[in-house]
Structures are given as structure tokens and as C-alpha cells.
């Protein structure tokens, strides 16, 4: 990706995000988002985040690897457990990284 493309992407996302934030503030509460959008929006974080996490853990060099030899999958599963039980950001990151380093060193 060229550097001018990157700048254009950043600018486009920035302007779009500002427009989304300003939208109803600019209208001063004279309107609100349609109900179907509000219902669908509830699922955006779960759908998008899962779609980003799972391939990063499961796809190794372009192939699906569900074996115990997949260090990232094991470390990710452990981190998911920690995130679920503790909801601690730093602890999740620390456990996930430590697990990956240990598996890479001794696996």
C-alpha cells in the first residue's frame, strides 16, 4: 500500500467518523436513528471482532490449522478464557503473550 493511499484512507475514515459522531448532535435531538439500524448495530461488535480474531488464530500461512501444534490458537484460547473470567485487559494480553512465547520456545 502506497503512503498516499494510506493517508487517503485515514482521511476518509476520519471524515466519515466525524460525520457519524456529529450527525444527531448537529440535529439537536430533532431525530433519532431508525429502529432496524439500532437492532442491527447491537451485533456489530460481536460479529466483526469474532471475524477478526478467529482467522488470526486458526489460519496459518493460508491454511486452516486446528491442531495442537498451532501455538497461536492455543495461546488465544487461553487468553479468551482469561478475558471471559476476569475482563482484565492487561492480564489477558499478558497471559496471551506469555503463552505464545512459552509455546514457541518449548513447543
Amino acid at each position: 500500500m502506497s503512503s498516499s493511499t494510506a493517508w487517503l484512507i485515514i482521511l476518509a475514515i476520519g471524515i466519515g467518523t466525524f460525520a457519524l459522531r456529529l450527525s444527531f448532535i448537529q440535529l439537536l435531538g430533532r431525530a433519532s436513528p431508525p429502529a432496524y439500524l439500532q437492532r442491527a448495530l447491537r451485533f456489530v461488535p460481536a460479529a466483526v471482532m469474532a471475524a477478526l480474531v478467529l482467522p488470526a488464530l486458526v489460519n496459518v500461512n493460508g491454511a486452516i490449522d486446528l491442531s495442537l501444534g498451532n501455538e497461536r490458537l492455543l495461546a488465544g484460547a487461553l487468553a479468551a478464557f482469561v478475558a471471559w473470567r476476569t475482563r482484565q485487559v492487561l492480564l489477558t494480553l499478558a497471559v496471551g503473550m506469555a503463552a505464545l512465547w512459552l509455546l514457541q520456545a518449548y513447543g
Binding site: 466519515g16 467518523t17 457519524l20 459522531r21 439537536l28 436513528p33 439500532q38 448495530l41 466483526v48
Partner: peptide
Amino acid sequence: TALVINLRFTMYSASIAP
């Protein structure tokens, strides 16, 4: 994709506007 993730800001915007 980035804008879809940020769509939630419209809800906050509507809620806080008054």
C-alpha cells in the same frame, strides 16, 4: 469496515444531543 464499526456513534450522538 471502519465506518461500520463506528456506526454506534450515531446512537450516542442521538442520545446525548438533547
